[in-house]
Amino acid sequence: MIELVSAERCIGCNLCVKVCPTNVFDKTEHEPVIARQSDCQTCFICEAYCPADALYVSPYADEQIAVDEAELAGNGVLGSWRATIGWGPGRTKLAALDKTPFIDRILPARTIRAAGVSDVRTPTTG
């Protein structure tokens, strides 16, 4: 669940308000507020769009937790998903680094079930 909008980092662009699929944030005069936390679907996509690395989505989908901004910043967690997908200046986009083509090769052998669970390239998908 979304747990943090950093007042210190936020530049007030309101992109998170606009892009959140489940409308969790409300715009204010300052940084957006988490207005409907229980509607968060833990999809991490607001973090990908935030240009200021000001958001933190905790990994726990169903429970609220306390977070410490200084610690998250210190550990390099803030902005880490945006960095991984390669958004922001000077980064290589994830698509180009996608290792899906190699995953079949290393997958433990899997038989194709009679029900036909495999279609063309099942092992790599899902």
């Binding site: 998903w81 994830l94 996608d98 290792k99 995953i103 290393i106």
Partner: peptide, 12 residues
């Protein structure tokens, strides 16, 4: 390889 194919899976 696994991480770089499905990176979001590892975030949590």
């Amino acid at each position: 390889i696994i991480r770089a194919s499905t990176p979001l899976w590892f975030v949590p």
